[in-house]
Design a protein around this nucleic acid. Sequence first.
DNA 1: TGTACATCAGTGAACGCGCGTTCACTGATGTAC
DNA 2: TGTACATCAGTGAACGCGCGTTCACTGATGTAC
Lengths: 205, 205
Amino acid sequence: MRLTKERAEANRQRIVAEAGQLFRERGFDGISVAELMQAAGFTHGGFYNHFASKADLMADVTRDVLAKATANLLRLTDPNEGRKEDLFAVYVDMYLAPAARDNPGRACPISTLSQDVLRQEGEVKRAFAQGLEAYLEAFAKALPDVTEDRASRRARAIAAFAALIGGLAMARAVASENEAFSQEILDCVGAAVKSPSCRNDAGGR
Amino acid sequence: MRLTKERAEANRQRIVAEAGQLFRERGFDGISVAELMQAAGFTHGGFYNHFASKADLMADVTRDVLAKATANLLRLTDPNEGRKEDLFAVYVDMYLAPAARDNPGRACPISTLSQDVLRQEGEVKRAFAQGLEAYLEAFAKALPDVTEDRASRRARAIAAFAALIGGLAMARAVASENEAFSQEILDCVGAAVKSPSCRNDAGGR
DNA sequence: TGTACATCAGTGAACGCGCGTTCACTGATGTAC
DNA sequence: TGTACATCAGTGAACGCGCGTTCACTGATGTAC
């Protein structure tokens, strides 16, 4: 039952999309090839018609999911769409929303995959490092303007984003045990990242 | 070959200590009971004389390793030992040092275990949530003083610590692919967390 | 354009392997008398 | 204090299970003529 090229390629993308969500939810090692293929609507044997190995899929997914996160960030903070300050605040609020905390499969892949990537090698790490570079560049562009040079804007971006992924990680880790504590973390980090003082020169030289 | 109670307890603690390091390096799922016991100098069968299950050990290790991190933080930032500002800066520098990045087994357990804990339940999550609460309380105490109320000091602590674990996670993820980028992340986050403006009112109301 | 054949996406059984856990066994330690 | 017996930390083989990967097979699609 050979399929048309178009159909086969669509099926491949379906596997990548499903894996993009499931890898974020359960980690690279938390979901098997068989479960993954079943979630995409196939039996497991056909996996190797599309990918050389599970690690090959991980690299593809990492590329795909980070590129989409960057595109999403650029779209939501396009300076033609409103005041930079407002757009940035809305992005941060969305990033740290309870919905994002409770649905890692649809939220920022950097907060989840940064740990999974540690124990991988080669192409997966490369895809992550390059994807993170691109994302941070977009994040620096999205920051509200202050009088500063390019280097210190980048430094601000890195420090602010570190707080976002660290805050999300902590909020997720304690959410089921202590919902109030989890919400407090989200609030504190959100306020700090949006506050003028953090935006101003935290991270500057 | 029954052992004395003291010897048996010492062996148990040895397993917990070894696991504390290995779980941080490879994650809860990244090391098997057999490897763990071998690293501690035993064969795997005896594991269940000390622990009801691997999850039982995870909970023990989480408690142990977070308590030690908190004790270590309190010791290094004891206000009798110097100016709070200096002690805090030294702690941050140590936290983000390349040595800490490259040896997660001996570095902060919160940055590594916050992800592993997500996919666990019950006692492991409880141990982490309680350990994190205690650690953040100590972290708030360690922050240099500014004129502020207790709530905003806690908010500062949470936001600053979020940046530390997020920065460490990113720096680790890209270290092998882009050493300069990794170092840049550590530098930017360190500067931001130590800077007066971040210490001042980022995260305040 | 029609036809014959090679290609290949998908199926589902099977592979070797490592996992967490259990088990029978050993023999020094702890304890009841 | 001495003795007989129960206890239990450690050993290493074995368990069932799920993993990533391979394989023979099917049959519609793609292609060479």
